[in-house]
Amino acid sequence: MAYVRRYLPHLVLAIGAFVMLLPFYWMFLTSIRSPGEIFDVSLWPIPKDFSAGENFSRAASQVPMARFMLNGVIVCLGILIVQVLTAVPAAYALAKLRFPGRRLLMTLVIAALCVPIQALALPLFVGLAMTELLNTYFAMMAPFFLSVFAIFLFHQSFRSYPNEIIEAARMDGFSEMEICWRLVLRGSLPSLAAFSVFSLVAHWNDLYWPMIVVSDTNLAPPPLGMLYFADVESGANYGALMAGATIITAPMLVCFLLVRRHFIAGITMTGVK
């Protein structure tokens, strides 16, 4: 009985992990299999006919994969930088400064969390079209510059920063901006890491918005590029398609592994999820 109690949680978690990881495993498996084996249901990791080289070189040469990746990097970093630049001072003000209307603003932030991007897509699209900004990096980034999720997450984490340190800093001559960036954000690096992962993954994987505002292949971020790839191939070469998917998933995996410790500290600290 004690045995069961001890291992049951692990068993449940293992099943969960299996379900989550299976698609990725399948993707990787398909990317190294030859066309003949692709529809095998076996999960055996070593294919009879090892065609990873062929699939990956196909994926890299058929479409400008490097270009897609670069586009992804530009868009994701652009979004992340502006998000942090705007959300950190906003969160600091909401968490630590006293001014009339603070509660109302905080309520608005939380309310804004409930608005999905789809609801805003049409006005945003019309606006961008009228200002002739479609088919630009800016069009892909602009709707995400102001992140209420970031404001909320940083607010949760900044709130626990000791007030006495902020007061000591004021007496020492720190300006509010220096307090915000050099002390308070400095004390919340785990939540910065957590938010960076959330933001990078979300926008790296985003297909919906780039598909709406970009039709130029040269501007396509990876998921949109994959779509072109599938079109070119009429969806026939699954091996190469999955090799492409593996290539664009890898950076996110690396990014997560690098900040894993901070990420976990960040989400447990801020009480998000």
Binding site: P162, E164, I165, E167, A168, A169, R170, M171, D172, G173, F174, L183, R186, G187
Partner: peptide
């Protein structure tokens, strides 16, 4: 005046040292 312009020093109950 702002706190920094008053040239006063304060010692807090929690000491309020800059942790980093």
């Amino acid at each position: 005046m702002d706190p920094s312009e008053r040239n006063l020093a304060m010692v807090f109950q929690s000491y309020a040292l800059y942790p980093h």
